[in-house]
Each structure stands twice: as structure tokens, then as C-alpha cells.
Design a protein around this nucleic acid. Structure first.
Length: 599
RNA sequence: GCCGAGGUAGCUCAGUGGUAGAGCAGGGGACUCAUAAGCCCUUGGUCGCGGGAUCGACUCCCGCCCUCGGCACCA
């Protein structure tokens, strides 16, 4: 029976391009797991969108002298292009600036309020009369009242590391250059996380066995040590989602509160666009649905504590308010957060251009070459490093040599000697060695599948590559290029065996290397593709127009049958002219790429 | 400062209370279907440092050093 799998991926913020660290951190692992479950025939919904609200976007817009909406839309358009080229197959990639997301977020807010998890509190905030707005603490600097260091942020001093009370900061001034600041009173809504702490603790304990050490330590360990404290969830801002309460004009829901709600609102928008308006419930009002959240380590708190607290806090109220219906929202199954990827030994930094940008890299390298390196080097347990020499070495020694060359050597040998057909053998006459190899490869559907289920993607890819190596060893032993000189039937059997093994490996590798596996799939002349197509389309609502990225499955009813099973390659099948799947990379590019960094 | 994760062969990483593992790189060999790829053999490590309980630890406990993240108004 097909399972419902929600693949939820961190929402990229609309003030920077996406780099390899972002890709390997969340978008790529999410896509790999989504493709695996689609191949298994499960019902997958993979969603994310551009986080378009909040102060950083407005500041960026001010700096560029452009309207905020234009700025977020420019980044959004770039994201859509990247995901299509990289094969990140979102069922819906939307944005937080939609009428639907506004409604859903406001309903969550009201449901939490109804259930008594919100309260209001007044506080003093720095206000810029010149800019006519309150400034976030992050944008106010001054002298630390504890250690005397200059350049302390009003909420925290980077010199002594202490958390500061903003109103005590000495000589405060705006980082953005606005004139004198004054303290003004303001009022905000707070989410009373302390009331939800027992529920969050239970939620984490129930998942402790499957969650990564890094994720659990960062959340459960933290709560046990410090507890959960109330957090403000509104801000003095005009770019965002209005607080749905009378008399609260000029205030918006704070971005971290509303951005995570996007996982739910995007599912609802997807259902509307797909013209099955109730379909989102299969992932969101279904205790059996499994939700996976792919994020970076900087985001752990928001996804393991805050978002579950919001979901559990709304109880049955959300569905009552939003749909006049009954039921509870599904809570996360796992949050396989990744660590960070550095670049040539240093932290990735957009402002210093110490980065490998996704769209730029794709102008010079094939998506599967990038996907391979980003997966085999994924920061699952600890930070990893993108090193151009290693990229070239792994591409040439592993991807091309072990797998690409294997597919090419067998296909071209077969194509040449059997006139473009799979050797017409009698499968009943296969030798023990042939059957042993096929059994070893077919066990991969279990072993690779087990790693993918547990979201251990490096291990899964390593296992698939190890199996490819088994086929190389088999070929060396059976040596069909020698057999064919003396015993063409024997050569036909070993070539058929190797072809069938490759046909199975193609599926095991497809979640990781979708473009080349799809191409290999066509060499075998299959009628049904492995994967569907990505399309963009405009959507109109009361806020205007936004463009979304969607995924269309290649199947008749929008879904392909289960293909995650061993090859059933028929002797005598017509093949298409094969060609190498990957390119060897020249070592000279290492120096070229390194020269680009930091400029 | 506090909390958390990590520090294992030249590189990237896996691992466990009982004589240290893989891939790549380095060295040697036989072969030629293949993108000079593949296959076989092989050299590398006092498992961050210092103590402790144990018959015995890389693995458990304590202390320290280094790297990274978080610390709730950056997402």
C-alpha cells in the first residue's frame, strides 16, 4: 500500500543566491529521498518556497533602490531556474507572499490564540525617526555595557559573548546609517512555548531513536538544560503578513513564525492548483503520513521545537477556523538536518564571493556530476569541505571510472557484437556465477533502500557504487571479450548478465543521478520514463501574480508504478545507440576554479 | 561564557569493551571490452592531549586543547 511521504525543505531566503552548501544541506537530500519514494510508488509531496518577508529583504531593497516585491521576485526566479537545471523536483515551489499563505498563517495564529498559547507584552525597542520604523536588534550597534567593546549588536556582544538587554546599550546607532535612535514602547504577541514544552519534549523523546545525534543534542538536550521560553511572534514591519487582530495595524507576523507554516500552506496551494482541493489532507491530516524536514543545522531549533509546538498548539482549532472541519495536523516524522559544507577550508561567504553558486556551476558542469560530489560529500554527521581537486578526483576516479565506464563498456560491447540487441539467450541456461552476480545486485534494492529509508544518503550511494564495482569484477572474471572468440553463447550469457545488472543499478542510482540514469534508461528502449517533468506556471491571487515550479509525473494518472525492483530485461530487446554518460574533467580546471574564489 | 556536535592512515570518511577498517592517492602485477577506464596484490595510523576505573579501550569516566553550530529579534 502506498505511503504518504511529505518532503519539506527549508525555505530559501530572498536575499541571496543559492550555493552548493545550500544545495547539499537541504534541497538535494530532499530531492533524493523524494525520488526514491516516487520510484517505490509512494505518494510523495515535496514542497518549499521563497521566504520573501522580513527585514533583511526590505533592507536589501532599500540598498538596491528597488521595490521589495521586485527584489524577492528576482531571487525567486533565479531559484526556479536553478531547481530545474539541477533536477530538484518540487511538487510545488512557491513563495510566502501569497494570499493562501497569508490565510493559513493567520489561521494558525488565531488557533494558537484561541487555545491560550499567545499573550501580549509591552517592551522598549529602538526606533529610527529618520527611517520611521523600529529596528531589529541585529541592526542596532553600540558599545557593550558589560565589556566596553565597540560594535556590539544590541542583543548580543560578539566580543564577550553575553546576551544583552537592548535598552542598556551605550551610544546606540543604526548599522544601516539612519540618524539618531530613540527608545519607544511597542507591544507584541508572544508564543508561550513554556506551556508547550511537555508536548515538545514528548515529541522529541518519541523520535529519539531515529533522529541524528546532532539534531537531538541541539533540541532535546537543550530543552532539558534550559527549557523553552516564550517568544515574540510579531514585529513592527509593513512587509509581511498582517497580524489578524483589530487595532494591530502596522505589525506583521514574525518571519520565523510564518515561514515554517509554509510547509502546510504550500501543500494546500499545491492541492488547489492540482484541482484536488482536499488532497493536502493526505499528508497533513493523516497520522500515518511521514513528514521529513530537510534543513541545515542553523535551523534545527525552528524545526524540532518551534514548528512542532505550533502544530501541537493549534490542536483541532486550525481545521475549525480554516476549513470548518475536524481533525489534527500531522507532526514531523524526522528532521534529518545536515551540518555545513565549507569551501576550500573556509566558511562559505556570499559577501566575499567565497562560494560556488549553483547556477554558475551549472554553466560549466553537468548536474549529475555536481549531485554526485554533493551527495558523496554530504555533511550528514559533521561539516565537510568542497575541494575542487577532490571534485575532479571523485568525478574521474569514482563516477566516471567505476560506474560510467562500466555502463559504457558493457553497452558498447553488446551493441557491437549483437547488432544493437540484448543477446538472445535462454535465461534458464545462466551459469552459477551469473546468478550469483544478479543476486548480489538485486540485494541492493534492500540494502540501498534501507539506507535511503534512514536518510543515510552517503552510505546509500557508497553501497550502490560498491555494487557497480562488483559488476566490474564479474566482467574481469568472465571476460566476454575472450569468450566471444571461442564460445559466443558463453559471451552472450555473461554480457546479458552484466547488462541486466546495469539495468538494475540504473534504478539504485536514479535518485542520486536522475539525468544520466534517465538517459541510460533510454538506451534500453523503455517506453515509460523513470521520472516526470518540471514546469513553471503563473498563479494569480489578490496579492498579484507569483510563479510556481511544479512536478508532473510521467504516468497516466499523474503517478508512475513502482519501479524500485530488479530489472526484468528481456533477451533480444532492441537497444539504442549508447554513448558515455559522464565526462572526465581536466585537472587544469582546479586552478581555474580556485582563481575565481574571493573575487 | 553556556549548550550541542566533531577531532581515527597523505586526503575523504566508517567503526567497535578484546590483537585498528573502506574508498581515493602512492608502489607492484596480469589483462584489453571500455572515457589509458576496469581487475589483482601492496606501503601507510602510539584512533586530539593528559589522567582514572577495567584482566583488557580507539570504544567507559574526569580534565584539557582545537574546529564548527546554537544561545531565542539573522533566516
Amino acid at each position: 500500500m502506498p505511503e504518504n511521504i511529505l518532503i519539506a525543505i527549508a525555505w530559501p531566503y530572498a536575499n541571496a543566491e543559492i550555493h552548493v552548501g545550500n544545495l547539499t544541506g537541504s534541497h538535494l537530500p530532499g530531492d533524493i529521498v523524494a525520488r526514491y519514494h516516487r520510484l517505490k510508488g509512494n505518494q510523495v509531496l515535496m514542497v518549499s518556497g521563497t521566504d520573501s518577508h522580513g527585514t533583511p529583504v526590505t533592507l536589501r531593497a532599500d540598498a538596491l533602490g528597488k521595490p521589495v516585491e521586485q527584489v524577492y521576485k528576482e531571487y525567486h526566479a533565479g531559484f526556479l531556474e536553478l531547481f530545474q537545471q539541477m533536477g530538484i523536483t518540487y511538487d510545488l515551489f512557491t513563495t510566502t507572499h501569497t494570499e493562501n499563505h497569508f490565510k493559513v498563517s493567520q489561521a494558525i495564529f488565531l488557533a494558537l490564540r484561541e487555545n491560550g498559547f499567545l499573550f501580549t507584552q509591552k517592551s522598549m525597542q529602538w526606533y529610527s525617526p529618520d527611517a520611521r520604523r523600529f529596528l531589529p536588534d541585529r541592526y542596532v550597534e553600540g558599545t557593550c555595557y558589560l565589556c566596553g567593546a565597540e560594535g556590539a549588536r544590541s542583543d548580543q556582544c560578539d566580543n564577550c559573548g553575553n546576551v544583552l538587554e537592548p535598552e542598556k546599550l551605550v551610544n546606540p546607532h543604526a548599522k544601516t546609517g539612519d540618524g539618531a535612535l530613540e527608545l519607544r514602547e511597542t507591544e507584541h504577541f508572544y508564543l508561550d512555548l513554556s506551556k508547550l514544552e511537555p508536548a515538545v519534549t514528548k515529541f522529541l523523546q518519541e523520535r529519539a531513536k531515529r533522529m541524528r545525534e546532532t539534531v537531538l543534542g541541539e533540541s532535546l538536550g537543550k530543552i532539558e538544560a534550559e527549557g523553552l521560553k516564550p517568544r515574540p511572534i510579531t514585529r513592527d514591519l509593513d512587509w509581511g503578513i498582517p497580524v489578524p487582530v483589530e487595532g494591530w495595524d502596522g505589525k506583521c507576523l514574525y518571519v520565523w513564525f510564518e515561514a515554517v507554516i509554509g510547509y502546510l500552506s504550500a501543500a494546500i496551494e499545491w492541492a488547489q492548483i492540482a484541482d484536488q482541493p482536499q488532497a493536502w489532507r493526505e499528508w497533513w491530516v493523516n497520522p500515518a503520513a511521514r513528514q521529513f524536514y530537510f534543513i541545515g543545522k542553523d535551523n534545527i531549533f525552528f524545526h524540532t521545537s518551534l514548528w512542532p509546538a505550533q502544530l501541537m498548539g493549534v490542536g483541532e482549532q486550525f481545521l475549525k477556523i480554516f476549513a470548518e472541519d475536524e481533525g489534527r495536523l500531522t507532526i514531523p516524522f524526522d528532521v534529518p538536518a545536515n551540518q555545513f559544507m565549507n569551501l576550500e577550508g573556509q566558511k562559505i561567504s556570499g559577501s566575499r564571493n567565497w562560494a560556488v553558486w549553483g547556477r554558475d556551476a551549472l554553466t560549466r558542469y553537468d548536474p549529475d556530476a555536481l549531485r554526485y560530489y554533493l551527495t558523496i560529500n554530504m555533511p550528514e554527521m559533521r561539516d565537510t569541505d568542497w575541494d575542487w581537486a577532490e571534485f575532479v578526483a571523485r568525478n574521474n576516479n569514482e563516477l566516471v571510472a567505476t560506474w560510467g565506464n562500466l555502463a559504457n563498456r558493457v553497452l558498447s560491447f553488446c551493441y557491437k557484437h549483437w547488432d544493437g540487441h540484448v543477446p538472445p539467450i535462454d535465461p534458464a541456461r545462466l551459469a552459477q556465477a551469473d546468478l550469483d552476480l544478479l543476486a548480489a545486485i538485486e540485494a541492493g534494492f534492500e540494502s540501498v533502500g534501507r539506507e535511503l529509508e534512514a536518510v543515510r544518503l552517503r552510505a546509500a550511494l557508497q553501497e550502490a557504487l560498491r555494487l557497480a564495482s562488483e559488476v566490474n569484477k564479474y566482467l574481469d572474471t568472465s571476460a566476454p571479450w575472450l569468450q566471444i572468440k571461442t564460445d559466443k553463447d558463453a559471451a552472450a550469457r555473461s554480457t546479458y548478465t552484466a547488462l541486466k545488472a546495469i539495468d538494475s543499478l540504473k534504478l539504485l542510482l536514479a535518485p542520486f543521478l536522475p539525468f544520466t540514469c534517465e538517459r541510460l534508461h533510454t538506451f534500453f528502449s523503455y517506453a515509460i520514463p523513470l521520472f516526470g517533468k518540471q514546469v513553471t506556471e503563473p498563479v494569480q491571487d489578490s496579492l498579484g501574480e507569483h510563479t510556481v515550479l511544479r512536478y508532473r509525473s510521467g504516468g497516466q494518472e499523474g503517478r508512475l508504478p513502482c519501479q524500485w525492483k530488479p530489472s526484468d530485461l528481456q533477451p533480444g530487446t532492441k537497444l539504442n545507440q549508447p554513448a558515455p554518460l559522464f565526462k572526465k574533467l581536466d585537472e587544469s580546471l582546479i586552478a581555474e576554479e580556485r582563481a575565481r574564489l574571493g573575487k
